[in-house]
Amino acid sequence: MYDFRLGEDYPRPCIDVAASSREARERLWGFQQRSDVQAHNPALLKRHTTHPRMRQS
C-alpha cells in the first residue's frame, strides 16, 4: 500500500513490542501477590472507592 521496505526504507522497531508489553503486564499484575501490597489494600480501597465527604478520619 505505501511501497516501503521495513528495515530498509524505514527502521525496524528498537524493541520487541509484544515481549515488552507481556513483561510489563506480568510485572504490574505481580504486585497483587506481594504481602506489602496486600496489607495496604484496605487503605487503598477506602481511599479510592469512598466519596471524600463520607470518609471518616
Rank of each mutant, 00 (worst) to 15 (best):
M1H: 13
Y2N: 10
Y2M: 09
F4N: 05
F4W: 10
F4Y: 15
F4P: 00
G7E: 00
G7H: 03
G7S: 05
G7A: 02
E8N: 08
E8W: 08
D9P: 02
D9N: 12
Y10G: 00
Y10R: 07
Y10P: 00
P11H: 02
P11E: 00
R12W: 06
R12F: 02
C14T: 13
I15Q: 12
V17G: 01
V17N: 03
A18E: 04
A19C: 04
S20N: 11
R22Y: 08
E23H: 10
E23Q: 10
A24H: 13
A24K: 11
R25Q: 09
E26M: 09
L28E: 13
W29C: 07
W29I: 07
W29H: 11
G30M: 07
G30K: 14
G30W: 12
G30H: 10
F31C: 14
F31A: 11
F31Y: 15
Q32S: 12
Q33K: 15
Q33L: 13
Q33T: 12
S35T: 07
S35F: 06
D36A: 03
D36E: 15
V37E: 07
H40R: 14
H40A: 08
H40T: 06
H40Y: 12
H40P: 00
H40K: 10
P42F: 03
P42Q: 03
A43M: 11
A43V: 09
L44F: 14
L44V: 09
L44A: 11
L44G: 06
L45Q: 11
K46V: 05
K46I: 01
K46S: 04
R47K: 15
T49I: 05
T49P: 04
T50W: 06
T50K: 07
H51Q: 08
H51C: 05
H51N: 06
H51K: 08
P52M: 07
M54R: 08
M54N: 10
R55S: 00
R55D: 01
R55N: 01
Q56M: 12
S57V: 06
